[in-house]
Amino acid sequence: MKEIALYALDIAQNSITANASRLDLTLLETPEAITLTLADTGKGMSPELLARVSDPFTTTRTTRKMGMGLPLLRMAVEQTGGSLTIESTEGVGTTVTALFHPTHIDCPPVGDMGDTITLLIQGAPQLELRYTHTVDEACFQLTTEEIRAQLGPELSLAEPEIILWLKDYLQEQEMLLREHKGMKA
């Protein structure tokens, strides 16, 4: 994958498949590290599955014998000298933490987090999502709870008009974070 944002979108699909009601997606950028964390309240994994989960020939689905999401992410972080940590408790949830070293030549760019978040909401409008993006001291946060507070209960967050508005909104906010980073540099 070409962007960290695409890994985030991919790994978040695992939370949705695991019937998570909540997902905290956090991206923390400092000069030393880019840390992507996905913490969900899905069904979690048994210690046996957790031990094998980075193996590309491990999957919970029954249609095929491969699952490439976590192995690809592990490879991407390790290529930068970083690490992937997965904590999981059955019946409680899973937390995936991916640490990239941004100064390494193989570190992918963060990419379009705005697109990732809007499409995540479009694909799972019922999910309670909290997105936090911190660049040095600047921080932006968006929750689906505050979006629902504006829209009321009867409208689905997956409506194209709402999604496209959110996309513009997030792009604006992400750009402000980038400008902050640019000013510091």
């Binding site: 505050e146 979006i147 504006q150 829209l151 009321g152 409208l155 409506e159 008009e161 709402i162 508005w165 513009d168 909104y169 604006e172």
Partner: peptide, 13 residues
């Protein structure tokens, strides 16, 4: 943009 703008979309929808 502010999230309050969503209210206008809600009313239209």
């Amino acid at each position: 943009k502010t999230l309050a703008e969503l209210q206008a979309i809600r009313d239209k929808m």
